[in-house]
Nucleic acid binder design. Structure first.
Lengths: 228, 228
DNA sequence: CGGAATGTTGATATGCCTCAACTAAAGTGG
DNA sequence: CCACTTTAGTTGAGGCATATCAACATTCCG
């Protein structure tokens, strides 16, 4: 989340809109990128591909995110970025961004800050996967998705998009389809949320956050959200 | 790893040397930091503390690393930084660093790049913990430690420091003490390394890297190392 | 030398993965 | 619009990797 001024400056950048369908890759592991992208709509994911073809999803990105700011300074992609549903992104060449930095250093710092928050999200994911049992892990995951969507202004009627299959959630949370399916059933019993048709509806935030041991401080929002 | 010029500029910054003994924290979760630190010697770790007191180690840092560059733009620490053995760090106030950026933007970009590599390391850790069985996970971990030490010029006689107990390795790899102990024994059978007295000695890099499915591209070195 | 930290080994338990079959929903073409 | 195909979700059974618990050995260190 950039400040309004920074966001305005970014919008003035010459950019090209690119769309992708669910399942398509926008960048692949090993690619060189000479442009970054800003998500306009839909959901992107970063993922590693393992030998054998399995995936580990690393993070998910929604409108307003810069999932690829890192390519500004890292020559090759160490992961791929794919579309989880129909997606539109603004593609901005690196040189444009670098040129803008010179005029507005604060914008550079703001984007830097975004990449640091990204890193904080990865850290939290390590702990989530490493230390929490599968049901709590899922609860934490749902909390993060919802909280970030809310911070981005994408929540309406306590509902946001979550266009992931249970298989994909399993590959994000280092679990299996069966494992996630059963965790989902266990969590549903808490009546704290509903997940249908790619939409996540929160019924009882407190309970879900409690269950998932979710503390949003790692997201480093400038002002905390008021959760219902 | 900054470029020689950048590193020289950093060395000119007024800084204060601070030391810490094994087990001491340099910064705690929730703290505000108004200075960053550069590791001079010893090993630091970042970690999350869980309710119940358990730890999840997130990353380890050796001489030359900036484990805390993120505090430049993130107000509060979302994790702690502790010393794994006797440590010396150079403490540089944020305002000095920011002032230097103005004179040498390239330095800012170099540090930004370092934080992006940090993030890549976290991502790899997610995959390592999430998708690899415990023995391969350990092998991968040892490879990363050694490879980074080598890149930093801290390897002599195919040996580097690794001042961690099996309990600490377990808390880094989302395993248990017994689990790590047995993985260690299994790995030792490959004769590819020795780990004693806080020193890691590599006997057969190829075999260990193979076992741990270790591909160093995520470390984004400018020129790859030649491994013996 | 004694005590604490670290590492090793064995026994047992269990969370979750794997495999497999089946149901439900969604998407497609005649 | 219905039959068909594909994708997603559900359920059960069985096995295994790894956690947990407990005792003991070893090394480190004051």
């Amino acid at each position: 989340m950039l400040s309004p001024e920074d966001a305005a400056a970014v919008r003035m950048l010459p950019s090209q809109t690119r769309t992708a369908a669910a399942g398509e890759d926008l960048i692949r592991q090993g690619d060189r990128a000479d442009a970054s992208m800003i998500v306009l709509s839909g959901m992107l994911a970063r993922y590693h591909t393992l030998k054998g073809g399995g995936r580990q999803y690393l993070s998910f990105h929604i409108a307003g995110d810069w999932p690829e700011a890192q390519s500004l300074f890292l020559e090759r992609m160490d992961h791929a970025i794919g579309a989880m549903n129909a997606v539109a992104v603004a593609v901005v060449p690196h040189r444009r961004i670098m040129a803008l930095f010179q005029r507005m250093p604060s914008l550079g710092f703001a984007i830097w800050r975004e990449t640091l928050i990204d890193a904080a999200i990865f850290r939290e994911s390590i702990t989530n996967i490493g230390k929490r049992e599968i049901t709590a892990r899922l609860a934490h995951f749902l909390c993060e998705i919802f909280y970030r969507a809310k911070a981005a202004g994408l929540v309406k009627d306590d509902t946001c998009d979550l266009p992931l299959s249970q298989t994909q959630i399993a590959d994000a949370l280092a679990s299996s389809l069966t494992g996630i399916n059963r965790a989902m059933q266990a969590l549903r019993k808490t009546q704290s949320f509903e997940l249908r048709g790619g939409r996540l509806h929160i019924r009882n935030w407190r309970r879900l956050a409690e269950y998932g041991d979710f503390n949003p401080s790692y997201l480093h929002l400038r002002r905390p959200l008021r959760m219902s």
